[in-house]
Amino acid sequence: MERPIRVLVAKPGLDGHDRGAKVIARALRDAGMEVIYTGLRQTAEQIVNAAIQEDVDCVALSILSGAHNTLLPKVVELLRGEGADDILVIGGGVIPGEDIPFLKEKGIKEIFTPGTPTQVTIDFIRGNVNR
């Protein structure tokens, strides 16, 4: 069945820089996806509640504050608690290379660092959503 992929684009934590999140949101829109954009300074709980209610295929988290090792695994953990671990979780932002293996081990499927062409992210989402 032809249907748009639904993606929640969220910014966990306290940094106020949403240009990257907006660029990604726009790129996913232009790729034919339905993007639910929630705005700045979201808690992991808010993100997970929104992901459940919106029945998204993917949660894309943009983070520039440095708190990624805490906040990103928290989102995965809470989704698991809701029985929603079939939702693909990806991350993007200023994330040091040495942190990426830890994040992947915690269930974040891919991390996109600055300079990644948006098409790479689009293709990854299309290839990895679970429905």
């Binding site: 748009p4 829109r29 790729a31 993007v35 929630t38 979201q42 808690t43 808010q46």
Partner: peptide, 28 residues
């Protein structure tokens, strides 16, 4: 979008406080 079928659904941005209220369900 009439061209790509994509959309930015941004109404939740104004409703963030409601997001953790278990008796509120928001669907875009």
């Amino acid at each position: 979008s009439p061209f790509t079928g994509g959309a930015i659904l941004g109404d939740r941005v104004r409703m963030n406080d409601l997001n953790t209220d278990k008796d509120v369900f928001i669907r875009s």
